[in-house]
Write a protein that binds this DNA or RNA. Sequence first.
DNA 1: AATATTGGTCTATTGTAATAGACTATATCT
DNA 2: AGATATAGTCTATTACAATAGACCAATATT
Lengths: 119, 119
Amino acid sequence: MSKLKLFDAEYKLMDIIWEHEPINSTELTKICRQKLGWKKSTTYTMIRKLAERDILRNENATVTAMVKREDVQKYESEALLEDKFNGSLPAFLAAFLQDKKLSKKEAEEIQKMIEEATK
Amino acid sequence: MSKLKLFDAEYKLMDIIWEHEPINSTELTKICRQKLGWKKSTTYTMIRKLAERDILRNENATVTAMVKREDVQKYESEALLEDKFNGSLPAFLAAFLQDKKLSKKEAEEIQKMIEEATK
DNA sequence: AATATTGGTCTATTGTAATAGACTATATCT
DNA sequence: AGATATAGTCTATTACAATAGACCAATATT
């Protein structure tokens, strides 16, 4: 399995870590209890599993992410496109934009990115 | 749960149905056995569950989809954007296009769609 | 009439992600 | 010294999607 493939619960935890890192592990269990309703051991189990896969590190009670949020996002995006749209970005956009309006600002941002990726 | 939320195995079945519909149910079990390695009862169980949720119909041994592939694709795309990119299409594209090149043709197609969605 | 095929149902079983309880060791505070 | 908080492990348990076995009724076939 790819290092970047995260399960739902794993992603939720990483989300909190990305937002707060470096973060003390006890502090993290408290945030998880509050935001996700997780018990302490649930958080620690999760931490351990993710550490085994080198997705994060827990050293001296300090938790740090070893993968970037953008990289995971990129991986998930590609997986969706691959699975559901045969890898085609235009196909994805056709479905996504159906019955949708974009603001001028969004459109400009996007046009710029597309240009950049075509160079 | 949304009507359009399909689990992985469900999507695989629907994929086959969308390709072949309207399709005879016995025929469908055969395709599923061949393409997915499913036993007959697995396919029928799946059919029943999906029929209960009005995602397909099985009448006189003929299976037909009640939801369009594009609608499910749209739902899944929106869910990913919502969950992982805070609903922002630019954010999604930024991640997706990272280290990626687009062909001129793709770029043009996309530009056209963006324009269309801005009108 | 016997038998094979079709078209299913209903109730398990399996696999595995998600969750947590019980327990431990160490440091800190009173 | 005893109590409390910190930092964690290890082994279940739970939840639920995925899968299938056993069984049945109605046709179609020999």
